[in-house]
Amino acid sequence: MDNNSQSSIGLYKNTFLAGLWNENPVFRLMLGMCPTLAVTGAVKPAFTMGCCVIFVLICSNIVVSLMRNLLKPHLRIMMFTLTIATFVTIADLILKAFLPDMSDALGPYVPLIIVNCIIICRAEACASKNGMFISIIDAIGMGLGFTLTLCVLASIRELLATGAIFEVQILSLKESGGWFVPLAAFSMPIGAFVTLGLMLGLINLVSKKRS
């Protein structure tokens, strides 16, 4: 009995940590590239996007794991999409109601969470095969991994493009007497690709060294 609960704690821990590093959705699984490239221009929208994804991921994982025994194999993707679309619509409505400025800034990228591969991947790979509790832990791990990654990329880009992180000025700008001249290219798509590419290289290097 004791042994059993210990191993299940280990399982929970591993499930949670997998999302953060070993199976990090962006860096290791290369999923959810669209929001990763599109909303990482600044930390605030990236963070909001991350929170939306966490919300949708948890809800859809709960629902999918609850109905996993009722699923017909050939209709399962339809069920996943239906579930995800529902919660994304709810998240979109909540954003519009309570964070109108953020909703404007994210524009079409919130509805696009529906086709975000991370969520359907977790529904398929984890929630449709496991119990509710472990699915929730998996959702939190994956969601946090995604949010953290987005925030890391966004802070690099925001720092280089505006000299600020989370709209807090860190480098003093030249136009206000400092030394830093913003590299506007980093707020553009080219900045997203370059930052993501270099980060991927760095992560691969680190994990290669560790193994």
């Binding site: 913003p182 590299l183 506007a184 290219a185 980093f186 553009m188 080219i190």
Partner: peptide
């Protein structure tokens, strides 16, 4: 040059 044009138009 493309990077410079994008950054310091």
């Amino acid at each position: 040059r493309a990077f410079l044009t994008a950054s310091f138009g």
